[in-house]
Design a protein around this nucleic acid. Structure first.
Lengths: 210, 210
DNA sequence: GTCTATACTTTGATAGAC
DNA sequence: GTCTATCAAAGTATAGAC
């Protein structure tokens, strides 16, 4: 019985599925609460607003992914003190794919939500992530800096944001791109093959000598 | 007197300014029509819907930029039959900056609108652009393919979409990034310096041998 | 052909009873 | 914690004036 799950979780589960499928603005609270079989007003009671609900949906994934990611970076640095950029980016793949064991399609859902959220939210999500997961992010940035010591810090700042854009945009439109690649080039892709394609692109861009 | 401008243009001017400042979903039609000093219903009369208005605002820029861009590519290919990827991307800078002569801050406004629109619109804008400006896009893709003949077509497809993500996301958040770079690295940037930073990144990523 | 007044529908949010 | 009722704001649609 789904009624054994508490209301808050029922809302999060329904919202996550609908947000990933339809985007945030196209998903009404009434649709979420009807799918979740809870009362409309319970969203406001448990989360305060739709914006906070979006954050909460993402936080469930970020709370798993961020520590796993910075652990993976730390392990990499222990075993390979001079890890390459490609090594660093590749180290994030396993924590990403682990999300599939939490929920079916977890990796895809998380990256789509992150992509859509990062842009639709007009900077609110950027603030939320940097303030809540700043330490994890910093360990990643430090690892990148160590791997390309000749690149000025300011350049690394810009290029990591270029990289964020590449990843976030690609993941937000991953379904459409996979369909197009299948139709035009007869390629069978999934979220993991797309991740594997993007790593050489971003590693090359971050390391380029201007 | 602003009343000498026709209603359609008054709506487009007001909408463009507000969309670039606040984003699409944060800008109501009532705000647009009150700034434009026209009746609310005139948006529906002239454009049919808010979505169509967004398209029309972008189309004013795309109608200028797309032919200018494909002309610039054609000229480059005549003068440098073996132009590099960096040459090709750099050739787009001048058409972009020309938009500043149409309207103050035209380049910045266009790229922000394109960035925000491309993601918020859930694929509708992708369809609109490829169907209305497909020939111009194709001449660009062909030039890229010629400059990196050893890269498979499918890889170029993916990497050009990675590039689109990089550019679109960066431009959509350009104001915030410029502010952060000023605070953290004492850098003074504007939209042109950001464009100059992104070119080596994307040129390197598209050309990388996987 | 254009424009305006007005009303319809959906949405996020909230107050108050239980 | 949950529910009903209700609100204000937003996108949309239409009838009718000019």
């Amino acid at each position: 019985m789904s009624s054994r799950i508490d209301t808050k979780t029922k809302i999060l589960d329904a919202a996550e599925k609908l947000f990933a499928e339809r985007g945030f603005s196209e998903t009404s609270l009434r649709l979420i609460t009807s799918k979740a079989e809870v009362n409309l007003a319970s969203v406001n009671y448990h989360f305060g607003s739709k914006r906070e609900l979006i954050r909460a949906v993402l936080a469930r994934y970020l709370d798993l992914f961020m520590p796993a990611a910075s652990n993976a970076i730390a392990e990499l640095q222990q075993q390979h003190p001079h890890a390459s950029l490609t090594d660093i980016f590749s180290a994030l793949v396993s924590p990403l794919l682990t999300l599939n064991s939490i929920r079916a399609g977890g990796t895809r859902t998380f990256l789509q939500l992150l992509g859509r959220g990062y842009i639709e939210s007009q900077g609110h999500l950027r603030w939320f992530i940097t303030s809540h997961y700043g330490e994890h992010l910093q360990s990643f940035v430090t690892a990148v800096q160590a791997s390309v010591p000749t690149i000025p810090r300011a350049d690394i700042f810009w290029r990591l944001h270029f990289t964020l854009g590449t990843v976030v945009f690609t993941m937000a439109s991953a379904d459409a791109l996979i369909d197009i690649a299948a139709a035009d080039f007869d390629e069978k892709n999934n979220i993991e093959t797309v991740i594997r394609k993007v790593i050489p692109y971003i590693a090359s861009g971050v390391a380029v000598s201007a």
